[in-house]
Amino acid sequence: MQWTLNYEETWVHRLNPAFKLVFFLLLFLLLLFIHNPNIITNITVVPLLLLLFSTGHQKKVLLILMLPFLLLFFSSASSMMFFGQGSTTWWKWGLIHITEESFYRGLHIGFRALNFALLGLLFALTTRPVYLFYSLIQQLKVPPRFAYSFMAAVRILPVMLEEFQQLRAALLIRGVKKKKGYRRITQTITLYAVPLLSQSIRRAHRIAVAMEAKRFNNNKRTYYYKPTFSKFDLLFLLYTTIGFGVAFWVGDTFPYFDSTDVRQK
């Protein structure tokens, strides 16, 4: 979240945001077509290095943000490892049936999830939403009405956070008792979601009227920020291409897992 963290701007921040988004989308699709666990394990290094050394954020912050990824790795991998289909049984206990195929497939899924997570965090930590939306309008022709609404909506979030704290204090003071079971859920909705959402809806409505009062409409407009392409985009392209290339080559030449294709045959 760019509005709460302190960071130094690095070259990854200067990439064209729309290019970054499209490029990340392509990487994402490419990852879906990789079925060799050796390769995907190697690939993990590519976003990891960028994340650790080129985001300009403190290492401590990065580690905290990456902590849930371990949980994610395990939870994504586990169901396939324990319950996936396969012929070479390693271990069987009740419903749990670990086969060689399902184990590697689980591992593969875990690493793939890890890659998505790292790429996602890399994007989030190096992209200011305002630049992204300006770039989306100008490079990808996203209608300004949606893009500016998004930017305006992002502004409301910190206000809501403040209101959330006030609300919590107010409820504490009123001595609201927590209910049990499913009524706890409905209670949370009436006590927290309703006041916060209704306040935000009213605020959003007022902001929209104010925007129209500032003559925001579908007419021709100019732009304060004009994101362009730079040598950094090229650098990024080179880094990932070479990184992926090396990962593929190493994965093919020096495999460390027995399996090279995790798909069910």
Binding site: F116, F123, P129
Partner: peptide, 12 residues
């Protein structure tokens, strides 16, 4: 996605 989802772009 913009706040750094662990599911990355897949969430989109």
């Amino acid at each position: 996605f913009l706040v750094g989802s662990e599911y990355g772009l897949s969430v989109l």
